[in-house]
Design a protein around this nucleic acid. Structure first.
Lengths: 207, 207
DNA sequence: GTCTATATTTGGATAGAC
DNA sequence: GTCTATCCAAATATAGAC
């Protein structure tokens, strides 16, 4: 348990490297050999710790998504408790936790790009896994949006949420790669980005 | 030259099937064996007609992108010639040709999803190919947007265009899968979608 | 838990007959 | 231009020693 030079267990190193390579090359495009080589662990370690490549992929999601969704739901609950909450508040509850995670955790920016991959992926099993385990979060947000946009019928609302979710995913995926000017702190850069995305999304949803 | 039962040449059948399977499983995820089996051609036909998988991928893009970009540039030129043209006009020139192609050509909906894949793909060679061959189109549109949004500095504009392009790509990719109500014609459904996307994008760009 | 070695499958590409 | 057969590399997965 802990042969790792870096202080991380073999399992954690595999997860971290897999996240990076899946973000860069896709799930089919990144091989277990690339992963184990980059993580400096033995090839057999993946199957020992995870059983299969597919399970490794699921673990890459689980590791961050459990926490991210906990934060999103907590933020949504806080917001929804205020009787005068706005569309912008709900969008904030959705966007802020993702960007916070992506900036605070090492490899967090890679994970947001993995999320974008999942969005593009139409693989049946992956979609089912995500829907089974995390679908309820999106449904709660959808319900919150529906209450704030009663003028839109259901079909129109879902169509717009789909665009917004896609746009946000892409924007956040690219966020890590945007170079900020040297004179703004990381914190205020993130805050600016959050405000931009909120205004952008709100404008699209209400238009 | 023409052994195909469907009236399409072997080469065309390969391209059509490849487009569908690349859209569904990604470029790494769809194998040449799957492609040739579905196209009911021999495995060796791919290398005979295209030389390699990579060249096949490029041909899948070229076949539709040449035409699409011709239409986009023509529409942009028409719009830009009018001194009072608006942001909405430029967005129309970008969006309409894509949706027209996706609805008029068989397999066009698949191609829009291939485009979405390319957007998510960070593969060096693919990006270089697309940038080398079609980058000038996006630069022309970017210039047109810049003229209409002089209050935004360059960095901010690119950041927003990136989001809008991502959102539009995703929206158009999903468009083919959205079931329209039975009482609206295909044509008016498309027209409604175009108007939605334009308003949505314009709101985000101006916000 | 980690290693080496290997089984097994799959994928891209070619050779050569027709 | 199309076919069969085959080569070779790469990938996932497992067996078994340590």
């Amino acid at each position: 348990m802990r042969s790792a030079p870096s202080g991380f267990s073999t399992k954690e190193r595999i997860l971290g490297v897999a996240e990076t390579l899946f973000a860069r090359h896709g799930f089919a495009g990144a091989s277990l050999r690339q992963v184990t080589a980059a993580a400096k662990v033995n090839l057999a370690a993946v199957n020992y710790h995870f059983g299969s490549k597919e399970s490794l992929i699921e673990e890459v999601f689980r590791r961050r998504l459990d926490e991210l969704n906990r934060h999103r739901l907590a933020a949504l609950a806080t917001v929804a408790a205020r009787p005068d909450h706005t569309l912008e508040d709900v969008l904030d509850a959705f966007i802020r936790p993702a960007l916070e995670q992506s900036m605070d955790s090492a490899g967090g920016t890679a994970f947001v790009r993995v999320l974008a991959r999942a969005f593009a992926e139409h693989d049946e099993r992956l979609r089912k896994f995500l829907s089974d385990n995390y679908g309820h979060v999106l449904r709660e947000f959808a319900a919150a949006f529906a209450r704030l946009l009663p003028q839109l019928d259901k079909q129109e609302l879902y169509w717009r949420l789909d665009i917004v979710a896609g746009a946000l995913t892409y924007a956040m995926a690219d966020f890590g790669m945007i170079k900020r000017k040297g004179d703004v702190s990381e914190r205020s850069h993130r805050e600016q980005t959050i405000q931009h995305l909120i205004r952008f999304s709100a404008a699209g949803l209400r238009s």
